[in-house]
């Protein structure tokens, strides 16, 4: 995903970032990833979707078998 995201600055030519060795840089990268995720999350759907075992409606353990859709 990072290759698609619009950046806000260009790295100076000829310089490549060194692998992060310090906790500070690792923390910045985690924050960046988190920011990226939060920004991308605005593209998410309205609500989570899960479908399992043909169960469209679940009303607690006892009702699960009764609510499974018939074929």
């Amino acid at each position: 995903m990072a290759e698609f995201l619009k950046g806000n600055y260009e790295l100076p030519k000829g310089k490549t970032p060194k692998p992060s060795a310090s906790p500070k840089k690792a923390k910045r990268k985690d924050l960046t990833s988190e920011f990226e995720e939060r920004a991308l999350s605005k593209l998410g759907g309205s609500l989570c979707f899960v479908m399992k075992k043909n169960t469209f409606v679940w009303s607690g353990e006892g009702d699960e078998a009764a609510r499974q859709s018939a074929d």
Partner: peptide
Amino acid sequence: LMDDVDRRESVARALYRLNKVPCMVSGG
């Protein structure tokens, strides 16, 4: 119905325990 109710930490299961309201698939 936002996650797998068979999981112990299921949010849908927790919601149901909270309010006893049926959980329905939304399709998103």
